[in-house]
Amino acid sequence: MDPSAVREITILPGRNRNGEPERFEAITIRPGDTISIVGPTGSGKSALINDIEVFARNDTATGRTVLVNGEYPPEEFVRDPAYKPVALITQNTRCLADLTVEEFLAMHVRSRKIEDESIVGRTIDLANEFTGEKIRSCARMTALSGGQTRSLLVADAVLVAAAPVLLLDEVENAGIFKERVIEVLRAGGKAVIFVTHDPLVSLLSARRIVMRDGAVERVIEPDGREIAALREALRLDGILHRMREQIRAGDLITGPVGA
């Protein structure tokens, strides 16, 4: 089965930390969806995306089951990265590969048997759209900053891994241009699931899964009702973004900040 034939991924309920069943029937993820997973630290957000990533079959701590097109996915979907329809970008912003950026990407491209040689350069270019600190092809992976690593791994997931579903664990922590990331992923028809504490990322998502005690507490579809809040979050984020750049540049911020 071709990974592009993924029409939907369905999450079936498991149990919370006290062993009580979760109170949702099923959560369905389709191409183009944007979903954020929110909740306090330790509420089970990462466990939920890990269940999706490994296609849980009532064999993880949560007892959830994850189906593809309504069925248990074939084994190669779970085990062979070339068929796996899901790519997870972890919270860990240190890449441990002892290679240069170019070698790392070339090795990934080779493992995927992709013959288009321009893909390494295009991946680096896309990554540079996500970060303000330019990534050079000769830089070592281990020497990249958190933001650079994240940007590169997201760009790789889009172009090289080409997974239809992306799972991003706290993408905001690394200081990357989250709006641009969301824009590219949406334009590419990807389904994106964010684990996030960031109001803007949450508001930019069409659906919100609220976690508590290891379980899904609620699934919210704001359906336009949060448009005013989103507009305000974008304005505030713009202000913070400009201030961050000024502080980084060593400037003193004495003028009006809200303009």
Binding site: S46, N50, R79, P81, K84, A87, L88, I89, T90, N92, C95, L96, A97, L99, F104, L105, M107, H108, R110, S111, R112, L152, L153, D156, A157, V160, A161, A163
Partner: peptide, 24 residues
């Protein structure tokens, strides 16, 4: 759980360089 998709695949490729038939 500590590595992202691309790193997993690159690590897997290194293992396959040593033993292409190894079940991973």
């Amino acid at each position: 759980d500590l590595v992202s998709q691309a790193e997993k695949e690159v690590f897997r490729e290194r293992i396959r360089e040593v033993n292409p038939d190894l079940d991973i």
